[in-house]
């Protein structure tokens, strides 16, 4: 009888001690956690293009936090899906084609200015206020601010907005990864590389 009692008491004391320890630790080492929505939002490309079906990246981040799929962001593409999967601890899924395909080059909107009639529709459509102009005045895109979401293309009544690839200049050009060399062969391949002259 007394052994059982002792056991119970010991267990209770232990529980109390560890409970107190845990409680202390949770207060002492409390981490001001970045809310999951913000973390998700940080991973999204912030194009605010709405291709995911939500009116912006933040709403989609909220939806993801509420359990929506992570593969609805074409601008982010596979890398974003991978990052989200890592963050949320879920399996990465292939990009949902329903929402569009990943673009291989970043685009920027350009208004053919001589055709612009100044209807301001694109200005209203731009989620990041990257288009300048006023009614009946020619509009122009601030290329640096443009996220390439192409939301302005549709509303344009005269179709004077083009999505063009971002131009490369000295400031954003960089070397390609080397392509020649046996050491690049990661897996067996069909074509036999040329014999070296070693």
């Amino acid at each position: 009888m007394s052994t059982i009692l002792i056991a119970i008491i010991v267990l209770a004391v232990l529980a109390a001690v560890f409970g107190a320890l845990l409680g202390f630790a949770s207060v002492k080492f409390h981490v001001e956690g970045n809310p999951i929505v913000d973390q998700v939002n940080d991973l999204l490309p912030q194009t605010q293009c709405g291709q995911c079906g939500y009116p912006g990246c933040k709403p989609y981040a909220e939806a993801i936090a509420d359990g929506d799929k992570i593969n609805k962001c074409p601008p982010g593409g596979e890398s974003t899906i991978q990052a989200l999967a890592d963050l949320l601890g879920v399996e990465p899924e292939p990009l949902d084609a329903e929402h569009g395909a990943e673009k291989d080059v970043p685009l920027v909107a350009v208004i053919r200015e001589d055709e612009c009639i100044g209807c301001t529709k694109c200005i209203q459509a731009c989620p990041v206020d990257a288009i300048l102009g006023s009614a009946k005045q020619m509009h122009t895109v601030i290329a640096d601010e443009c996220t390439g979401c192409d939301l302005c293309v549709e509303p344009c009544p005269v179709d004077c907005i083009d999505m063009v690839p971002v131009t490369t200049d000295k400031s954003n050009w960089y070397w390609q990864a080397p392509t020649s060399g046996v050491e690049l062969i990661a897996t067996d391949r069909r074509s036999v590389p040329a014999e070296g002259h070693a």
């Binding site: 939002n41 999204l44 490309p45 912030q46 194009t47 605010q48 912006g56 990246c57 933040k58 989620p127 990041v128 206020d129 990257a130 601010e145 996220t147």
Partner: peptide, 8 residues
């Protein structure tokens, strides 16, 4: 992206 988020 951060900039775009702020602007949005």
């Amino acid at each position: 992206a951060e900039h775009a988020r702020i602007r949005y």
